[in-house]
Simulated assay, not measured.
Amino acid sequence: MNPLHGTTGQPSTTEGLVPEAHGYGYVAPSEAPPARPVASTPPAPDKPSQVPSKASETHSEPLIEFITDAPAEATEVPAESATASVVLSPLLPNIGTSTMARLLHLPEVPVSQDVPDDAVRLLVVEASEKGMAAVFSHIDRLRAQLPEAPGSVTSLESIGGILVIPADSKRTPRTVKLKLKVLSGAHPVLMCPWIPALASRLCDDEALAKVAEARPVATALKKLTAQIEAAVG
């Protein structure tokens, strides 16, 4: 059928031809330009389904958990020893206080110098009439600074005890013993044994250490140390 007239007719003259590139006519297949290959586009990968994660739905906690140091638990600090520190304060020079301080491993502090409130001061005197006069005079000066009127020997908080060093290897005079007995009624009186190193004024630490290692001296120092701890403890 002829599409223009609606009747049947001869076959169209365009049969066997191909349309030109511009679309306005027909040409023989041999005259048509070669067709360009169409680049094929790879199929797009399937997108994952947008399913909300359970973490974002259920809670808003961070995905990264930081580890921090936990605060240390409070620990009890052991209480320090109740025994106060002890210092030696000589009332007379050249009586062996420095040597005794080195033997007992205690500091030597002048009597005119203040000491901490928790320290115990031991007055160092010589077992002689001169030493007794010095200690009684010192006690009277301390008592004169107090509001009470001076009187008999009484206890003073600033005096933790009295360390008595023998004047020589001989026996202590009777009058000195009586005065030491009076002092012992108010303050602890500690009698230091006779040690030759006290009279020789040793300054060499090595020589003094050898003296302290001798059995009689070591025993005497051990006993004296125990008496000091008992008096101030």
Rank of each mutant, 00 (worst) to 15 (best):
T41A: 08
L92R: 09
P116N: 10
V189K: 04
A35C: 06
T225N: 08
D114T: 12
V77E: 14
M1Q: 11
V115R: 06
N2I: 08
S12W: 01
R201Q: 08
V125R: 01
L104R: 06
P48L: 13
E15K: 07
C192M: 04
E80C: 00
L183K: 03
K223F: 01
K130W: 01
A70C: 09
L156C: 07
S40Q: 15
M1W: 08
C203S: 05
D205V: 04
P42E: 14
T225K: 10
T154A: 14
V176F: 04
S128C: 07
P43D: 13
Y24S: 11
P62T: 05
V115Q: 06
G161W: 00
P29Q: 15
L202N: 01
G131E: 09
P71S: 14
P107G: 13
E157I: 05
G23C: 04
R171T: 13
H187V: 04
L88Y: 03
P11V: 09
L183E: 02
A119K: 03
D204Y: 00
T13S: 12
E157C: 00
L88E: 02
V87A: 08
R121G: 04
D117M: 11
H59L: 13
H22K: 10
A230N: 14
K177C: 08
I64Y: 06
T225G: 07
Q227P: 02
E65Y: 11
S30C: 06
K54P: 01
E65S: 14
A28R: 13
D69I: 09
S155Q: 12
P116Y: 11
S184N: 05
P150E: 13
G6L: 14
A167F: 03
I139V: 12
H105T: 05
Q227E: 14
P93E: 12
T14K: 05
C203N: 06
S184Y: 00
A21E: 11
S60V: 10
A149C: 03
P34M: 14
D168H: 04
S40A: 15
L163H: 01
P193C: 01
P147W: 08
A21P: 02
R215Y: 03
K210D: 13
E129D: 11
L163W: 03
G96Y: 01
S155E: 12
A28T: 11
R201T: 00
S12R: 02
E148W: 13
I64C: 02
E20A: 07
L202H: 01
P43C: 08
P93K: 10
A44S: 15
